[in-house]
């Protein structure tokens, strides 16, 4: 349902045959287009698991709620570190909230 890929930031993971997001998407919904950028084939088929959001090294993928269920522009981005994940919640008014959560002992 709900990821946006920023093609200005996406670098297709360089020379990798498959981008990291393409590698992990559980719905097989992501692919690399002719410009070496990640693309989603069917937004409405996305489960919203955020695997691609976490995997992206460029922070080029954002999670949002579709307008149908009240989405009004807030987004979530994630950055994975060795043993933690840092989430950036961007709110409707532009204000940002950050969360740092341990992921591995």
């Amino acid at each position: 349902m709900a990821v946006k890929i920023n093609h200005k930031l996406c670098n297709g993971c360089g020379q990798r045959e498959k981008s990291l997001c393409v590698r992990v998407c559980p719905g097989n919904l992501l692919y690399k287009n002719e410009d070496n950028k990640a693309e989603i084939r069917e937004k409405r088929d996305c489960w919203d698991c955020a695997a691609c959001v976490k995997e992206c090294l460029q922070q080029a993928i954002e999670l949002y709620l579709p307008a149908e269920i009240g989405g009004r522009g807030s987004t979530l981005q994630a950055e994975q570190k060795k043993d933690k994940i840092i989430w950036q919640l961007k709110k409707v008014d532009g204000f940002c909230e950050e969360f740092e959560i341990k992921t591995e002992e």
């Binding site: 009240g70 989405g71 807030s74 987004t75 979530l76």
Partner: peptide, 23 residues
């Protein structure tokens, strides 16, 4: 408030967006 959002980010981030969208 903070802890419940973190709990949901660990499994179902949608509700965190919902709270943000409802401001």
């Amino acid at each position: 408030n903070q802890r419940i959002k973190e709990n949901f980010l660990n499994m179902s981030p949608g509700i965190v967006l919902k709270w943000a969208d409802r401001e």
